[in-house]
């Protein structure tokens, strides 16, 4: 598929706006609750939120529209988990519902664990 220059720019623009917009929702959740919602809550909330939106069929259209703007935020991670589990269940039955989510997200999780470990070995925390 050949894309024109304008299409490319539009693609980046959509990723920027939708991705930034999803982050703003997280910011509002923290600021407007005077930080009762912590970053830990944001991480958990966005992943599970993504799972719900994906299962309800709302998230895939957003991914089609915004590309990385929808897949890079953690809601996209939830989308990956949900689609993996749903596809697994449809193709392999009940066992697939167990394995599908992890299969789909394995690379990302492993990358985070492995890089995390390596960084811990190489660096020391700087503090403030």
């Amino acid at each position: 598929m050949l894309t024109t220059r304008e299409d490319k720019i539009m693609e980046y623009f959509k990723a920027f706006v939708i991705g930034g917009g999803i982050c703003v929702i997280g910011q509002l959740l923290m600021d407007l609750t005077s930080y009762k919602i912590t970053p830990a809550h944001i991480l958990v909330g966005f992943v599970t939120g993504g799972v719900f939106l994906s299962a309800a069929g709302i998230y895939q259209p957003l991914v089609d529209f915004a590309g990385a703007g929808a897949t890079v935020p953690l809601t996209g991670f939830g989308h990956l988990l949900a689609q993996g589990a749903i596809k697994g269940a449809q193709e392999k039955g009940l066992l697939g519902a167990f394995g599908g989510g992890l299969e789909a997200s394995a690379a990302g999780i492993s990358a985070a664990v492995i890089f995390g470990y390596l960084m811990a070995v190489v660096f020391t925390p700087k503090g403030d």
Binding site: M30, P39, P125, K126, G127, D128
Partner: peptide, 20 residues
Amino acid sequence: HYDTAERQYRFPTEMGVQRA
């Protein structure tokens, strides 16, 4: 000590968080 207190009471020091 800022760093000993921070890691005990709040988040790891390298965690990216905004302070109230």
